[in-house]
Structure formats: C-alpha cells, structure tokens
Computed example of a mutant assay.
Amino acid sequence: MLVGDFYMHMPASKRLLEIILFVYHLLLFLTKPGAFRRYLKITKTLPFFAVPKTYNEKYLWRKFVDHDPRFTILSDKLACKSWVAKRAPELRMANVVWQSDNPDDLLALPDFMFKMPLAFKSNHGQGDVCIFENGVSDVKSLREAGGRMLAFDHGKANHEWGYFNIPRTLFFEELIMGQGCELSEVKIYTFGQDVKRIVHIGGRSDSLWANAWELDSEGLVVPSAEKAALGKPNEDIKPPALIDKAIALAKMLGRDFDHMRVDLYWDGRELWFGEMTVYNQAGYHKQPSGNSPDSELSRAWDIRSSHFMRKAALNCREKIYRNLLSSIM
C-alpha cells in the first residue's frame, strides 16, 4: 500500500490532525535546511515524521524528537564498551591500549604500539578507522589525521543527535583478526527482543560481500528477500557457526530499546563486540522497504516503546504533542 493510499483510508478528523502535526514538524525540520535537503535527496520523500509510519520516518523522528540520554552513551565508542561489558561480560571485546584528547600525544607513543596489530579510531566518529596490521607507523601523518578526526563534527550533516555531546577522544584498540579465516561482521536489527533482520558482511573493499538474513516463524535463520545494500550477496557464505548465540546476545543488549542495531564480529571461532548503532546507515534505509509503512521493518518498530513516549519529564509543548500522537497511533 502506498503512503497516499494509506491516508485516504483514514477518518477525515484523524487526517486533519496528522496534517496539522506534519506542518508543525516540517517547520521544525526547516530550521535545519541541510538535514532537510539530505533527507529529500536520499529518500525521495517528504519528512512526515510528526506521525512516523515508515522506517525512515521513524529514524528522522528519533533524530529530532526521541533524545534518549543512552543514545549518547551508545554512540560513544569508549562509553559503549563499558555499557556492554556490564551487561554481557562473557562477550569478547577489543582492549583499548591508548587514548587521549590531544593529537600531539601521538608523537610520544610507547614502543610496544609499533609492534602489535592495532586499530586507530575516534570515539565520536564513524568510518574513520586506521588499520595497522604490523604496528603503528608514520606518527606525524597520524597526528594530522587525529587532529582532523577530533575537529570533524560527526552527526551534524544528518542530525544524528546522539553524537552531539560526546567528549571527543582518540584511541587505539587491539586489532581483531580472523582465526584461520577472514574476519566478518554480523549486524543484527533488534526491536525490543525481536530480531527482524541480520546482515553478514565480509571481504575487502574491492571484493566486499553482504548477505541478508531473517528469522522464519520457527526462529530459523533464512535468506531475506531484501538484499543487503553494502555489497553483493555471496551464496557460498553461510551464517556464522555461533549465529544463535549472536542473536541471543543481540536480543539481550537491545531489549530495552524500541529499535537498535547490534554489531558483532566473527573471527571464525568466537564472537566479539563491535558497536551499538543508534542510527543505522545515518538513519537512511535506502531499500524500498525504508519508505513503505507496510514493510516488516516499519511495522516492527513501535515508537510507543521509545524513551520520548515513556519519559516522565516533559515540557508543555512535548506533553501536548505526545498526547496528540498517542491519540492517533
């Protein structure tokens, strides 16, 4: 069913109320013209997030309305490690061996870091990872890169609120490597304790593969009809041997959120923690299901379980909006 058809079947009074809310939030969204243009460009739809029904609209609603304080913790790669370690102490995690908020400190790294495999990251960034399989090299260039990482205001372009208040830090962690096979990543989409999508990714940038899975009515992992967007499928790759454990861990870590993506690494023997992703692909699901209110992902995400819909402290405007939204949903 198209979004237009969906609204034609709604009572007139309800449609009028939704239009009023749409205009109100559209004016709010227009205060961020860059985010507005980006949403239009990527999704090819208007930002009807006052009463979100599609997967993409719900991400937009999360960015502008649902400001759960835990989103800042989970978006901070260092704080997130501590958060997860308390809840899943059995889950392996790459050890942090160095951290600093001053890029000049990179010029005085301890000797052992020039000999061990490491990953260099910022705690507030995304995709800004430097891999050193044989130890750190060229610290002067690394210092320049670290300065750029700290200066970059990640999350601003797409209004990913969870990144806005992270105290910025550079860090090195041990490099997770495959044990007799290539390292792969398992991204598990949770909705409360339900899992609706699993994306398994591996390979190098020039040969990246990505398989999409889902759970059938009996809880078995089966191929998804909607392919992954990050790479071509590889039918020769099966789900990791510990996929059931991965799903159980994801359900446990994501159970207190209306939606979360739990990322794990598979080294061929063990599962490792990757990250908790609040805004999947910056909040844009580029497949057709992202803009369909009837898709599995759209229907699975129940924002009535969100922080905003459950929190006690609300200002007058928020109370009015939440009451109106509750009456419509």
Rank of each mutant, 00 (worst) to 15 (best):
I303H: 01
L170D: 00
L107V: 14
L220N: 13
V51G: 05
H159K: 10
G274C: 05
H285I: 06
W213V: 02
H67L: 12
R299Q: 14
K232F: 07
S305Q: 08
D105K: 14
M1I: 11
P239V: 11
N323H: 15
S298G: 04
D244C: 10
D206P: 03
S137L: 06
Q193G: 14
L46W: 14
D216P: 06
L107K: 04
Q281E: 13
L118V: 12
C80W: 06
F112R: 15
Y59I: 00
Y7W: 15
H307L: 01
V129N: 15
G155L: 02
K187F: 03
F152C: 07
D206R: 15
E144R: 13
R38Q: 15
A250Y: 02
G162R: 03
K53L: 07
S205R: 15
G203I: 02
A229L: 11
L21N: 05
I188C: 02
T72H: 14
L78E: 05
L230Q: 10
L175M: 07
E174Q: 13
D194F: 10
E185F: 01
Y189D: 06
F71T: 03
R38F: 12
L208N: 09
G178D: 04
H25T: 06
K32W: 11
E226I: 08
M116W: 05
F64V: 02
V136R: 01
Q179E: 11
A88F: 04
S82R: 15
A157W: 13
I198Y: 11
R62M: 08
A282F: 12
Q287T: 15
D101I: 09
E173W: 01
L91E: 05
F36S: 06
E174Y: 08
G180D: 06
Q193C: 10
F273E: 01
V51D: 07
W272P: 08
R148W: 05
